[in-house]
Write a protein that binds this DNA or RNA. Structure first.
Lengths: 136, 136
DNA sequence: TTAGTTGCAAACATTTTGCCGAACG
DNA sequence: CGTTCGGCAAAATGTTTGCAACTAA
């Protein structure tokens, strides 16, 4: 479904965008839903999905291409590396030197035109590190 | 669900493993199902899922952590880079120098213990490269 | 005024689970 | 012969869609 000719800033869209930008947790659609619902109780999950889709297509937010069955979103559209906790699935920003790694000796694939790559760090988050971690 | 004390090599498991190793396409569970069904028509999709899960837990196959809603599997358990076609979702092996990139200046994340990273190349596959490519 | 948007419910797609009879070792 | 496994159907999970009413511009 292509973007419409003009985008309206509805109360719902504004709120979704504000909350996504406020959260630093790279939330899933449902996590955004739970937060937004506190301020707008009758909002529907479908509205969340539709707006996340429209906003990411418009380049206002990022749909993260992190591994896993659930999609996560980021209000920060700058390209920066993420860590994913292998135990609970939580995603955080990497801090410090955010420079991407230099890839020497680019591998090839027969017939493919390579455009780029996606890098995701794996680790154990603070919560899961101590206490053994609950697999979510 | 933990692995049982002993694993049996049933006809179903054998067939799933053989077909997965034969295919070089990093198939989804359903794609394996379609292929296996030709030789064992009464097999169930649940059996495919259960066996793919058990075999990957046992380290016999790989559950790929590629982006996207659908999981893909690889009968080759060596760590090697993959390309994903951004147009059709197909996944192929990278050939040539398969050495992982050297990451200088490892970024950090507060409180995380970083174990490693996941690298996935993006590109356009031979089919999608010519003809504009059909979004699947 | 009208194209774009919402809430709701229902549909969809993928993966998981409970049950019980079958079969591997 | 005990444990593991398979087939089936149903459930669970995450996402998308059709539609009539509503609303921002």
């Amino acid at each position: 479904m292509p973007l419409p000719q003009s985008l309206r800033m509805t109360r719902q869209r504004r709120l979704i965008l504000d909350e996504l930008r406020r959260l630093k947790t790279h939330p899933t659609a449902d996590e955004i839903f739970q937060v937004v619902k506190r301020r707008m109780p009758r909002i529907s999950l479908a509205t969340i999905y539709r707006n996340l889709d429209i906003l990411s297509q418009a380049g206002v937010i990022q749909k993260l291409e992190t591994a896993g069955l659930q999609r996560r979103f980021d209000g920060d559209i700058s390209q920066h590396p993420h860590v994913r906790c292998v135990k609970c699935g939580r995603v955080d920003d990497m801090t410090g030197d955010a420079r991407p790694p230099r890839i020497e000796r680019m591998p090839r694939a027969e017939g493919y035109a390579i455009h780029g790559y996606r890098l995701e760090f794996l680790g154990t988050c603070p919560q899961c590190g101590k206490g053994g971690g609950n697999i979510q």
